[in-house]
Structures are given as C-alpha cells and as structure tokens.
Amino acid sequence: MAMRPIATTRQVTGIPTGRLATWWVIGSEIVIFGGLLGSYLMHRLVNMQWANYAAHTNTWAGAFNTLVLLTSSLSAVLAHHAASHGDGKKAARYLWMTMGGGALFVAVKAVEWTHEIQLGYTISSNAFWAFYYTAAGLHALHVIAGVIIMGIISVACLKNEDLHRVELIGNYWHFVDLVWIFLFPLLYIAK
C-alpha cells in the first residue's frame, strides 16, 4: 500500500475529513428523499382518496420496524462509545447487533410486502402504491447498504483498525433512521 497523500491527513477546519464528507453525503441524501417525499406530500394533499389506499398498509408492522430501527441506533451509539475508548472488539459486537436490527427490519419488510402483493396492491396499482414501494424501497436499499458497510467496518474493528469509521457509519445509520421516522407516519399512520 502506497503512502497516503498529505492532503488526506490535513484538517484545516478542525473537523476530521471523514466526518465532513459523511455530512456532505447525508446532505445530498436529504435532498433526494426530500424531493421524493415532497412530491408524495403534494399529491397526497390534493388526492383525498389516497387515505383509503393507505388504510391497507400494515401499521403494526411499520410500528414494529420503527422500534427495531430505533433500537439498532442505540447499539450504533454504544459501538461509537466503545470505539472512542479504543475497544475495537466491543465496538464490533455492538455493530453486529445493529446489523441484526437492520436485517430484521428488511425481513419484516419482505413479509409485509409479500402479503400486500398477494392481496393485489402492487407498484403499478396506482400512484399511492407507486410512491409507497418507491420511497420505502429506496429507504430499504439504504438500510441494506448500511448493513454491508457496517460489516466491512466491524472486520476492521476486530483488528482495532480505523476505529473512527464507527462514528461515521453511526451518523449514516441515524440518518437512515430519521428517514424512516418521516416515512412511517406519511405512509402508514396518516389514513
């Protein structure tokens, strides 16, 4: 492995480069979801009958997933705490718990969607279901990506390498969490 360029070691703002870049990533993600949810809201406000379609979504599954995702954020915080004390092994274990939460979230989603598709509510049924599957699907992709990245980071943690990354993936995971906090009421509760 070649030596790192000097540019990668500088820190003029006082904020570590990785953290800075993660925030820029999150910023650009916010506008992606913002555009999607903004479009959904504009439609929802003028289409009263969408409340009838939304009545078919499974609020309990959504609520359970909210609980799962919020709990997984707790273990992400605990992983950061362990990493900031230099305990890579402990951080890795907490990251695995978070990954477990992410996996459970996706599994619940899969069961839920299978059921809905069997009932005939597919992505091409109407504009509400199109938004439902697109927005929740895009979010689920972010969950899956987060789990994969966390897996890579946890391997490095076991060797006590690059522990600062635990904080970065934690920030990302909180963001994914936050998107769900918007999706859950918009797609499941508002009926």
Partner: peptide, 30 residues
C-alpha cells in the same frame, strides 16, 4: 449537491414509469 437530489428521485420514478408500469407522471392514471 443541493439541487440534484429531487431529480435523482425523479429519474427513479421515470424509469419505473417506463419499465414497471407505475404512473407517477401519467395523467390518465392519476
């Protein structure tokens, strides 16, 4: 970075309209 996000979402919606038969932009179907 601040402006392209909605269009990325829009591009996903347009591809779905083209390939999966969704109707984000189709006035005939809502």
């Amino acid at each position: 970075m601040a402006s392209v996000g909605p269009l990325i979402a829009g591009a996903v919606m347009l591809v779905f309209d083209q390939t999966l038969g969704t109707n984000f932009f189709d006035p005939d179907r809502g």
